[in-house]
């Protein structure tokens, strides 16, 4: 095979020194890339900065009280939250229990509803119907929480009193259902994304083997999407957990440990919202509310870390 004379291709066979140099020359694109990287780095780090700043703010507001005067065993296990009575008692267990009860009920309501909706939208709905469903689900997520609170107060309350024949309609069940309905659209949206992220080639491969639609979903799609679905539920829990005004309106806000879903209850968030305005700045009451905030912060942190851990664990297996 014949070769062209070398000199006809100056670009390739030029002096090696120039060749090597061009790989070391930092051109405009390189510097732009450098600058852009620095800019997004600042953006990314700012998230950590804000979280740290909020943590420090909450922490320092309640620090003096938390170290010197708060009995942690009473705070975590005491059953009486009476901050304005003399002597005050700071037992947060009713609030923790109320939060846990309502969150659990909310998840029992929202998870089946949301998964059903997500599977339908992602796997069965087609064309226009799918588009409309998605729009409505997103609208549902955008309803302000105070509206949900009003629904709890004036719609759910009589229904619960009627159906279950109980005296009190503002209780764990009411708040749980309201919160569940609030969290469902968020869980649906994230779960649907997780289902849509399963490549169509997987579905085709399974369907080509004669698997029914349900078999494809159950055996192929759901296992592959499981980390995303778990994360969806945990983010829904985080949402239910942090919700304040709707819970305050629907739960009855009774500062005692609920023993059934028909008992009224109070949550950590609602207590902070209800009492912080009345507490004198810097007082023990004021400070203990910040300790509550810290507790809330830590629990949310743990939930989000767990969600992250699940998602990454799933990827490693995949």
């Amino acid at each position: 095979m014949s070769r062209p004379p070398v000199s006809s291709t100056p670009g390739v066979t030029g002096p090696r020194a120039a060749e090597a140099k061009s790989l070391d020359r930092r051109d405009r694109a390189w510097w732009f890339d450098f600058g852009a990287r620095a800019a997004v780095f600042v953006g990314g780090m700012s998230a950590i900065l804000f979280i740290a700043a909020i943590f420090v703010f909450i922490g320092t507001q309640g620090l003096d009280f938390a170290i010197h005067r708060l009995s942690w065993s009473e705070f975590l296990f005491g059953t009486h939250w009476e901050p304005t009575v003399e002597p005050p008692r700071y037992g947060a267990l009713p609030l923790i229990a109320g939060t846990a009860w309502i969150t659990v009920v909310a998840m029992l309501v929202s998870a089946p509803l949301a998964f059903g909706a997500a599977v339908y939208v992602a796997e069965f709905a087609r064309g226009k119907q799918r588009e409309w469903l998605k729009i409505f689900i997103e609208l549902l997520a955008a309803i302000p929480s105070v509206v949900w609170g009003v629904i709890g107060l004036h719609v759910m309350k009589p229904i619960i009193q009627h159906v279950f024949d109980v005296q009190i309609g503002l209780n764990v069940l009411n708040a749980g259902v309201i919160l569940g309905l609030m969290a469902a659209p968020i869980i649906t949206t994230i779960a649907e994304d997780a289902l849509k992220a399963v490549p169509d080639t997987y579905r085709e491969a399974a369907e080509a083997m004669g698997a029914t639609r349900w078999q494809v979903i159950y055996r192929v799609v759901l296992p592959h999407a499981r980390p995303g679905l778990s994360a969806a539920v945990l983010l829904g829990i985080g949402r239910a957990f942090g919700e304040t005004i709707a819970v305050l309106m629907a739960s009855g806000h009774r500062l005692m440990i609920p023993h059934s879903v028909f008992d009224s209850a109070a949550t950590i968030t609602a207590t902070i919202a209800a009492e912080l305005g009345e507490a004198a700045k810097g007082s023990d009451h004021y400070q203990v509310l910040f300790v509550l905030g810290l507790l809330l912060f830590l629990i949310t942190f743990v939930i989000n870390l767990t969600a992250d851990w699940i998602v990454r664990g799933g990827r490693r297996r995949a």
Partner: peptide
């Protein structure tokens, strides 16, 4: 080495990849 230059130490990686 690409064109006599160790690819592990080129200062403009993108210039290398463009070629």
């Amino acid at each position: 080495c690409f064109a006599g230059r160790d690819v592990a130490t080129v200062r403009n990686l993108y210039a290398l990849r463009r070629r």
